[in-house]
Nucleic acid binder design. Structure first.
Lengths: 340, 340
DNA sequence: ATGAAAGCGCTAACAT
DNA sequence: ATGTTAGCGCTTTCAT
């Protein structure tokens, strides 16, 4: 017995005493196969523990059952949650997941897009906030199924799923305004990201609706270098008229703000209120618990998969855009401001 | 021009005016090609932005450049960090990563192992603590490159990389003992996992070295259902002679213990000391900061990739076993116990 | 040094 | 309802 050699359709065909096309039909669940023969083939498959070869399948132009996921890097809570939503939905749809981590090297993104489009995957999920048009054009030109995850530009010709960034920031800012805060410091993410721009608009709009103008001195940009956020807080504090509340575009930054404040013995929320964005796990375990804007990361992942599957199964289908709702989660890091 | 169709070796061959075999030689950097021809082919490749098709390559029996990663589920800090180490090392070695999440369904594990060994990937990384021998035998029989990550049985015929689980638990327990604790509650992970068994031995050994016997009533098993850990704490508290310290086999459980204790207004560390295992990010941000055993997750991932690559490049190579060192990280969640 | 040709495992016409 | 056959893009003998 040569059982150490992996079984192919040919082996199954021989074992079942039929032709390879019949086996293929059974494997793909196609009609026009006599029930008894179907059964016989299935038994042979079972006996030989046959698993169809995905690359061979893809090679002849049909589905491989694999979809690609392109992300900057692994290891953040945010990515972990998005990935979880994607993975679970993919599992239910019976797809495997191939991971492409760009490590923030833009060149890789272009290269990957090509590789993926030629490669094993039937479609691509893109969780890279700064979507350079370069490789998107490649994908669109090849009519390769793909969806952008967590971007905010509905005018794109690519499908996308995002959240209500504008509304989320608007809600958070309004909440602070209602608590009588008039000087609200803002720490933004990369301004090139469409979602940052939307959130910034939301912040400004809330201010405007309260008859307030925004103060450029109160808008600072985070650069994701860990100790940096603390400096921004110090810059705020050094102002003649420092903010009484700080709103950040991600929870990690908010948590760092709180930590910086704690080290400076400035009380949260009594002296300064803090609001974050995302609602990561640590937001609930922090002291005080962080008030933040809930970002439906997990659901976003699932929605993206749904759209992608539609594109894969239905190649001509037009781009779709889904926007999931954010939600203000009021906890302990904010309180009413009274000018004493 | 038909540039919307992706370039194949045939296109390159035509463009360079040579045969496909020559192109193949250039692509694979084989000898016996005249320098000028090599250059001409390279230019053609460049011009057509040719990317070799991996599945076609793999189909004829050579490397696919893909390795599989099998994990239970995504979304935990632990997995995120292991994956990060693996991903980065793989990136440097120029491999793609295909992810298999078993969702704790044993059947999926067997199925994946088969699928992978069938030819999708060149090798498999297994981060599934409960290693059922069933599919391992399949892999070994097929002589398929694979390495077990974070397991603890060096007697296996499969390569593995793990940590000093015994020593880690021994150190943590000894530390508590040195702080005069005599009743140390233990919350273990699944006892089927080899690493849990090693840690348990470490715990018992430390006790024994202090002339203490272990009390079965103080050893409880976590079941990973969020509210459950709290019950275990209550069970401890209900004892006639409750523990003065609690040691858990993962930080998530330790954090939940602390939360439960906080809700019950039992002070940590004054009333009860707590020690975790893993040293996840939240351990440092918790209040009080969690004392825990550092688990070199990231390095473990990298080490696993190193071994796997060796197996792939060198098919006959014998199994290797690496054990990385843990380290007790003393922070704020423990203090000296004096029977008042 | 280079090319022709035979597959790898599979699907999709095209027979029958 | 079932079988035959022609590729998919590539590597690898085997010729030349």
């Amino acid at each position: 017995m040569k059982s150490n050699h992996k079984a192919t359709i040919v082996d199954v065909a021989k074992a079942a005493g039929v032709s390879i096309s019949t086996v293929s039909r059974v494997v793909n669940d196609y009609p026009h196969v006599r029930p008894e023969i179907r059964l016989r083939v299935q038994e042979a498959m079972e006996a030989l523990s046959f698993v169809p070869n995905r690359q061979a399948r893809r090679l002849v132009g049909s589905r491989s059952g694999v979809v690609g996921l392109m992300v900057h890097a692994l290891g953040t809570e945010y990515i972990a949650q998005v990935t979880r939503g994607i993975d679970e939905a993919l599992y239910e749809a019976d797809y495997d997941l191939i991971l492409y981590t760009t490590h923030r090297v833009p060149d890789r993104e272009v290269h990957y897009a090509q590789a993926v489009a030629q490669g094993l995957a039937d479609g691509l999920l893109i969780v890279v906030p700064s979507v350079g048009d370069a490789y998107l054009d490649t994908l669109r030109a090849a009519n390769f199924p793909h969806v952008l995850v967590d971007v905010d530009n509905g005018n794109e010709k690519s499908s996308s799923v995002g959240i209500t960034n504008y509304q989320g920031a608007y809600d958070a800012t309004s909440y602070l305004l209602k608590l009588n805060h008039r000087r609200i410091g803002l720490i933004t993410d990369q301004p090139e990201w469409s979602l940052s721009r939307s959130r910034l608009s939301g912040y400004k709009a809330a201010l405007a609706d309260h008859g307030l103008d925004y103060d450029p001195a109160l808008i600072q940009q985070d650069n994701f270098m860990s100790p940096y956020t603390g400096r921004l807080v110090e810059a705020f504090l050094a102002l003649d008229d420092p903010p009484t509340a700080i709103f950040t575009f991600n929870d990690t930054a908010a948590l760092q703000v709180m930590e910086t404040l704690r080290l400076k013995r400035i009380r949260v929320p009594q002296d300064i209120s803090v609001v974050g964005f995302d609602d990561i796990a640590q937001a609930k375990t922090a002291t005080p618990e962080l008030t933040t804007v809930y970002h439906p990361v997990y659901e976003m992942g699932r929605a993206a998969v749904e759209i992608l599957c539609e594109h894969i199964e239905n190649p001509g289908s037009p781009p779709r855009h889904i926007q999931l709702e954010t939600q203000l989660r009021i906890r302990e890091s904010c309180c009413y401001w009274s000018d004493a």
